[in-house]
């Protein structure tokens, strides 16, 4: 498992990467009430592709790397509260990285824990 500075977790699954947000991020957001997921297709790193609305505010999730969105978690739009209840299971999308080695550059768990203190 790898982590981004934007508080996403990245889990390799074959040649794909599954993306969600960390428990820390979910806790900071508060109760999530709405999720807008991207369409499958190519995305560029940094593009705002997911909208999350909590009881408090709207936030964006960015594409963590260049690649192609191949699958989205449709069920999450129906049960956005899962992001708070089980953030590691509440995946948003699966992306096929343009560069198969792209995951190497991200934080490991120790580095992410140091980031959030």
């Amino acid at each position: 498992m790898k982590y981004t500075e934007e508080h996403e977790w990245l889990r390799p699954e074959g040649d794909l990467v599954v993306v969600g947000i960390t428990a820390h991020a979910a806790e900071q957001l508060g109760d999530v009430v709405f999720v807008e997921l991207p369409e499958p297709g190519p995305v560029e790193k940094g593009a705002e592709i997911v909208v999350i609305e909590s009881v408090k505010a709207a936030s964006d999730i960015v594409a963590p790397l260049d690649g192609e969105i191949v699958e989205i978690n449709e069920a999450l739009a129906e049960t956005p509260g899962q992001i708070n209840e089980a953030p590691l299971e509440a995946w948003f999308f699966k992306i096929r990285p343009a560069d198969p080695a792209a995951l190497e550059g991200f934080m490991d768990e120790a580095a992410y824990k140091a980031l959030i203190g």
């Binding site: 609305e53 709207a58 956005p80």
Partner: peptide, 12 residues
Amino acid sequence: LGLRPEGRAPMR
């Protein structure tokens, strides 16, 4: 007056 947006996305 009140508004009830369709769907789940809040109108802030």
